[in-house]
């Protein structure tokens, strides 16, 4: 709660300091009178602390303000964009896990193999490529030169339970490939490193040594003991990354003009649409707290040694 309050105050003031949305919204031919009307209509004529208090009062009742640009509730505009971002992040993490965990496991179990070295170096490369440049190079290669995939946008969507998704149409999938890949690459690298270090550590643990001495088949050791043991950090990180990616897929969405929340955030910052920016950051903060909670619960369910009360410092 205190965090939300602090976050909202900081963001509120920051957007206030950037500039005056009226200059951007108003028809330049407007008269002084019209200008004043508009300032009043947006509630910008009052001192900033009063604007903030009004905002807080409304926020208590679940009203985070009306978008200056769209004239509709800011929260609603953000939530409308949510499915697009969720879809992107979901598939990116799916690919990252499907590719990253097996590779990481291999590296962890064969840490001296030259292939392992190559994979680990590759993983460093994976997160070294600047995200926006990687996206641009994907466009250059797959769209401009090879003409395989469309450069941007979301493509055709189908509604499931009223939520539009792209992965069920061919057109949608074609639009999905590059942004998903762009988000997945650094996360695959992360998964590889996480799994590898977990597996390498587990390999030296007594219970694994014991199982090996007992003559348990290697495959079973991997499945029953090692994999299970490294699942906890992997799931923790997946959860956190899910939140993080939803919040910060901004760059990818900007490069591929993907109509998600991140794109909305950037546009809103440029247009000084304060209600949207503030609601966005508050929503993300809330989401983080929620994900943290869920991760803790999964954590506890997977590992009976973890008690919810005493977490690591």
């Amino acid at each position: 709660m205190a965090v939300l309050l602090a976050v909202s105050l900081v963001v509120f003031l920051a957007v206030f300091a950037v500039g005056d949305p009226v200059e951007l919204l108003i028809n330049p031919e407007a008269t002084q009178h019209e200008r004043e009307m508009m300032v009043r209509a947006l509630g910008l004529d009052r001192p900033v602390w009063m604007q903030y208090l009004t905002f807080l009062g409304n926020a208590m009742q679940g009203d985070l303000g009306i978008s200056f640009v769209h004239g509709e509730p800011a929260l609603q505009i953000i939530i409308e964009r949510m499915p697009a971002t969720f879809e992107l992040v979901f598939f990116a993490l799916l690919i990252a896990s499907l590719v990253g965990i097996p590779l990481g496991l291999y590296v962890g179990l064969n840490s001296d193999a030259s292939l392992s070295r190559a994979i680990m170096t590759g993983s460093i490369l994976g997160y070294s490529i600047p995200n926006f440049w990687k996206g641009m190079m994907l466009i250059l290669l797959l769209s401009v030169w090879l003409h395989w995939l469309p450069t941007s946008g979301r493509g055709e969507t189908v509604d499931i339970l009223g939520i539009p998704v792209s992965f069920l149409t061919w057109d949608g999938v074609r639009h999905l490939v590059m942004p998903v890949l762009n988000l997945a690459i650094p996360n695959t690298a992360l998964m590889i490193r996480l799994t590898a270090s977990g597996a390498a550590e587990a390999r030296t643990q007594d219970y694994v040594k014991f199982a090996r001495a007992k003559g348990v088949r290697p495959q079973r050791i991997v499945r029953r003991h090692i994999l299970r043991n490294i699942l906890i950090p992997v799931i923790t990180v997946l959860g956190i990354e899910f939140g993080a990616l939803i919040a910060f897929s901004t760059i990818t969405e900007t490069v591929f003009a993907w109509p998600g929340m991140g794109k909305l955030l950037i546009t809103s910052i440029y247009r000084l649409d304060r209600p949207v920016v503030v609601s966005y950051v508050m929503l993300i903060t809330f989401l983080f707290v929620l994900i943290n909670l869920i991760v803790d619960l999964i954590y506890a369910a997977l590992d009976p040694r973890v008690k919810l009360m005493d977490r690591a410092p």
């Binding site: 965090v3 590296v107 962890g108 840490s111 680990m120 993983s123 997160y127 650094p186 690298a189 992360l190 490193r193 996480l194 590898a196 270090s197 390498a200 550590e201 030296t204 990180v237 959860g239 956190i240 990354e241 939140g243 993080a244 990616l245 919040a247 910060f248 903060t285 983080f288 707290v289 994900i291 943290n292 991760v295």
Partner: peptide, 17 residues
Amino acid sequence: MTKPRPIDPTLVPPLVE
């Protein structure tokens, strides 16, 4: 409550030798 942050892949420890 500390909030989770985007995990920094560079800070994941490399292989334990």
